[in-house]
């Protein structure tokens, strides 16, 4: 096969893979980029200890730091169920009580989610602090709604 034909084949394959990925199954896995606490609490035992991502809202006043360590605990809720999360490390700057977070780690038999990595999930509203102070609320979907809890 000549280089040119190989090139044509290569470019068609690249596009076909992309489109096929969209049209067929694999994209479906990414449709569930994360699970929700409601799904975690009803999970089968054989999925304990497996790596996964869970998203929710960090419950207000639930965060506790163990002094002189980098260990912290907080609760994550999707509105229906709440799970405790144990994390070790420095949480990202946007990690905040009452805001969204995606935690990566595993759920174990102790019914605590053990995480080593937190991502902050922010919402689509943007405003200066002065407006926030004045109590302005801009229209938005709402964090719990973005979790698409079944």
């Amino acid at each position: 096969m000549s280089g040119k034909k190989l090139g044509i084949l290569g470019s068609v394959v690249i596009v076909a893979l992309g489109i096929g990925y969209l049209a067929l199954g694999n994209f479906g896995e990414n449709l569930v980029y994360f699970m929700t606490p409601s799904e975690v609490v009803v999970m089968e035992q054989n999925r304990y200890g497996k790596k996964m991502r869970v998203a929710g809202m960090v419950v207000k006043a639930s965060m506790e730091v163990i002094p002189n360590t980098l260990k912290l605990r907080f609760d994550l809720t999707d509105g229906a169920e709440t799970i405790p999360v144990a994390f070790e490390g420095i949480p990202p700057d946007l990690f905040k009580e009452g805001k969204g977070a995606v935690v990566e780690g595993y759920w174990d038999a102790d019914h605590v989610f053990h995480s080593h990595m937190i991502m902050a999930k922010h919402e689509e509203d943007y405003m200066p602090i002065e407006m926030k102070k004045a109590g302005v609320e801009l229209p938005k979907m709402g964090l719990l709604k973005t979790l698409k809890v079944n």
Partner: peptide, 13 residues
Amino acid sequence: GEDVDDTLRDLKT
């Protein structure tokens, strides 16, 4: 001052 949006917490830069 006033911590308007509860920004302060442990381990925050």
